[in-house]
């Protein structure tokens, strides 16, 4: 049994956390209510600012007439493929550059330039070369996530504890063993944080791609909305995007937790 003091302490923490949650929800509700109030009392022009109810109506009608699920699926699919490829290719290249310092030195300036280049500038080129299709959008997402993955994962790999590498060598390890038994496992944390950044990066790439060229997807809805000046559609698109982005992000966080718990 705990002492009264400890119980009070636990209670205080619980109360504090509850307060945080309540405040978070309150901000959202407050925002929506004010928005709806201003719209209903016609203090703002709903043609330009839309309103929570109109967004809700738009979602329903999209769902009924316009295959909302399909649009969401296209965006999620493109993001996940770009994300998967970005992680895979990025980590592979980072490993190769770790194993071969000469190659790293040669490619270092190119990586730096590619990293600082806003990838959206490559959009038109990719579309002309790859065609106006999902492949181009995926390449866009891939490009945006792969460079930063290479850089951050490689950085992690090269920062592996020198003493541990010495130990491995003294025990007779070859380069592959040093990589697979030390460098890779000791950098799971670095890799996971790169992966977390990647899921958001890929989504940015996909939406950019869908703005430039697409037949479906959330980016397509937003772009279409802006072309026909339908603010309800644009804001609905952004709203759905918020939800999709957070679900995917928390999915990765969950994955990270699962991997970490395996080791403790």
């Amino acid at each position: 049994m705990y002492s009264k003091e400890h119980k009070d302490y636990l209670k205080k923490i619980k109360l504090h956390n509850l307060l945080v949650k309540i405040s978070q929800i309150f901000i959202l509700v407050f925002f929506l209510v004010i928005w709806q109030f201003l719209a209903s009392t016609e203090r703002i022009n709903t043609f330009i600012f839309s309103s929570p109810f109109k967004v809700f109506e738009t979602i329903i009608s999209l769902y009924q007439n316009d295959d909302l699920i399909h649009h969401i699926w296209v965006t999620v699919y493109e993001t996940l493929v770009g994300f998967g490829l970005g992680c895979l290719i990025g980590i592979t290249i980072a490993s190769i550059l770790w194993a071969n310092k000469f190659l790293f030195k040669v490619f270092d300036p190119y990586l730096t330039i590619l990293n600082s280049l806003p990838k959206v500038a490559l959009g038109p080129i990719i579309i002309i070369w790859g065609g106006a299709n999902a492949t181009s959008i995926i390449i866009m997402a891939l490009l945006i996530s792969v460079i930063i993955t290479i850089i951050s994962v490689h950085q992690g790999f090269t920062n592996t504890d020198e003493n541990k590498i010495r130990l491995m060598k003294s025990l007779g390890a070859n380069k592959w063993q040093i990589f697979s038994k030390l460098v890779f496992p000791s950098n799971i944390g670095t890799i996971m944080s790169a992966v977390k950044v990647n899921i958001s990066m890929s989504l940015i790439g996909v939406i950019m791609g869908e703005f430039l060229t697409s037949k479906a997807g959330i980016g397509h809805l937003i772009m279409y909305g802006s072309q026909v000046f339908n603010l309800n559609l644009i804001i609905t698109g952004v709203f759905i995007l918020c939800i999709v982005a957070s679900i995917m992000y928390y999915g990765v966080v969950l994955l990270e937790k699962k991997i970490n718990s395996k080791w403790d």
Binding site: D161, K164, R166, L167, S170, L171, P185, S186
Partner: peptide, 13 residues
Amino acid sequence: IGFMPQGDSLFEW
């Protein structure tokens, strides 16, 4: 010959 490095260099995983 066996080598014991600085610190303990144990692998946490």
